[in-house]
Nucleic acid binder design. Structure first.
Lengths: 174, 174
DNA sequence: GTCGGTGATGTTATGGTATAACCACAACAG
DNA sequence: CTGTTGTGGTTATACCATAACATCACCGAC
């Protein structure tokens, strides 16, 4: 079993999250530069806010924060930024939560599988070929032409499973 | 490859949908009888409406229909019925559509995998052990304790993939 | 340089999804 | 008959997302 399929693991300790966020922004800057995409101030700021932690962030929470720093921020402000970020693989939408997480391995329209902790709300991202291919093969066996996969697993992350009384991590561990 | 994992296939022709619906209602009646669950008039009616076709149905569409036949129908009316039906496996929520489909093989809190046609909107349900087990194993390999799986595949059903110009089936093929 | 096109954002309004909180009443067990 | 539980009615509100149109910055053609 390869471990390489885990592209964004659960954090086992309170980690230096500012480096996660900084790395994600640097990768986005780099990719946009190479592809000629416009990572505007707004889009950059929304990506930064999504990376405030490893928990999925809701659109209206982003909006609340934007309102504090940008006059005229409204729902389309944040949804348009999220659309751009999703389209180019910088963030994923977690369908079962209606919330958004940053992607640690951005690529256009790539899928991925998400492990969502019910207790601490953290999300880990896998990009496991075994899962992807099994789903693909079984769908094709039914004559279905696959265009996209939504795979979201809920349960308990290693820390919450091991110690249900452990303190809850909160975002913003700067 | 077993075909038994396809528990609700795509319909290849305009089929006698009234028998699908009748069977689903009969199964629900039977299960509720055996388990001592109360399939009230409201719940039965909502289940019947969900089974109006093989396309996922939105909660407010159900509500619109209920309003025509029941004074005082309101969002909680339909959501409470859907909660009951989901809890006991009679319907599934399609997270990526915020819509609901009937289940052909009801069982408490069972998962299942869904193939969702982007063109005709029909949904087929699989209950494929290979998919389930692969996801389960890979999640466990990350130390994750799995409690639930959301697996939704979008694309084109066999008919729409074969003939993109074919007429769109509509629900209510009574 | 200015004209016009394109893409990003501002702005207002609305539509769509879901739940909180409280009330009335029926079914049922003791 | 009485308390408890479950079901649904009712009102209100919160949350999620997009339509439609206006404005502005940027940039290339001429």
């Amino acid at each position: 079993m390869s471990r390489s399929s885990v592209i964004a693991p659960f954090q086992t300790e309170r980690h230096d999250h500012s480096s996660c966020r900084r790395d994600a922004l640097a990768r986005a800057e780099d990719i946009c530069l190479r592809k000629g995409l416009r990572l505007t101030e707004l889009r950059r700021r929304v990506l930064e806010l999504v990376w405030s932690g490893h928990e999925p962030v809701r659109a209206y929470d982003l909006l609340d924060q934007l309102r504090g720093e940008r006059r005229g921020a409204a729902p389309p402000t944040v949804y348009r930024a999220l659309d751009f970020l999703q389209e180019h693989g910088f963030v994923h939408k977690i369908e079962s939560l209606n919330a958004y997480v940053g992607c640690a391995e951005p690529a256009d329209r790539h899928g991925g599988q998400f492990l969502i902790c019910r207790r601490c709300k953290a999300v880990a991202e896998l990009d496991d070929p075994a899962i992807h291919d099994t789903v693909q093969r079984r769908a094709e066996a039914s004559g279905f032409l696959v265009q996209g996969q939504v795979i979201e697993v809920t349960g308990l992350c290693p820390r919450c499973a091991a110690d249900p009384a452990a303190p809850q991590p909160h975002a913003h561990e700067h």
